[in-house]
Amino acid sequence: MQVAPVLSLDQRNFYALFHNHHDGLTRMIEKRAAQRHRVFKGGTITFENRGIACTVRNMSDGGAAVDLDTSATLPQSVTLSITRDNFVRNCRMVWRSDKRIGLAFVQ
Rank of each mutant, 00 (worst) to 15 (best):
Y15L: 14
Y15N: 03
Y15V: 06
Y15M: 12
A16T: 09
L17R: 14
L17P: 00
L17M: 04
F18L: 07
F18A: 02
F18E: 05
F18C: 04
F18V: 06
H19S: 15
H19I: 11
H19T: 15
H19C: 15
N20Y: 04
N20G: 06
N20C: 12
N20V: 12
N20T: 10
N20Q: 15
N20R: 15
H21M: 10
H21G: 02
H21Q: 11
H22K: 13
H22M: 10
D23E: 15
D23Q: 14
D23H: 14
D23M: 11
D23L: 13
G24A: 09
G24Y: 09
G24K: 07
G24R: 10
G24Q: 06
G24C: 11
G24V: 10
L25W: 10
T26Y: 10
T26F: 11
T26K: 13
R27K: 13
R27H: 11
R27F: 05
R27A: 13
R27C: 11
R27N: 11
M28E: 09
M28K: 13
M28F: 14
M28V: 12
M28P: 05
I29P: 02
I29E: 09
I29R: 07
I29W: 02
E30K: 07
E30S: 07
E30G: 00
E30F: 06
K31N: 04
R32S: 02
R32W: 03
R32Q: 03
R32M: 03
A33I: 01
A33Q: 09
A33N: 10
A33F: 00
A34Y: 15
A34S: 13
A34E: 09
A34W: 09
Q35K: 15
Q35A: 15
Q35I: 14
Q35P: 12
Q35L: 13
R36T: 03
R36W: 03
R36F: 06
R36L: 07
H37F: 15
H37G: 01
H37T: 13
R38C: 08
R38H: 11
R38L: 14
V39L: 03
V39Q: 02
V39N: 05
V39S: 05
V39M: 05
V39K: 01
F40E: 12
F40C: 13
F40T: 09
F40Y: 14
K41I: 03
K41C: 03
K41L: 14
G42A: 12
G42E: 10
G43V: 01
G43M: 06
G43F: 00
T44K: 09
I45W: 00
I45G: 04
I45Q: 01
T46G: 02
T46D: 08
F47V: 01
F47C: 00
E48I: 01
N49Y: 10
R50T: 05
R50Q: 14
R50Y: 06
R50G: 03
R50C: 11
R50M: 10
G51M: 05
G51C: 07
G51R: 08
I52K: 00
I52A: 05
I52D: 02
I52S: 03
I52P: 00
A53F: 07
A53T: 04
A53E: 10
A53C: 08
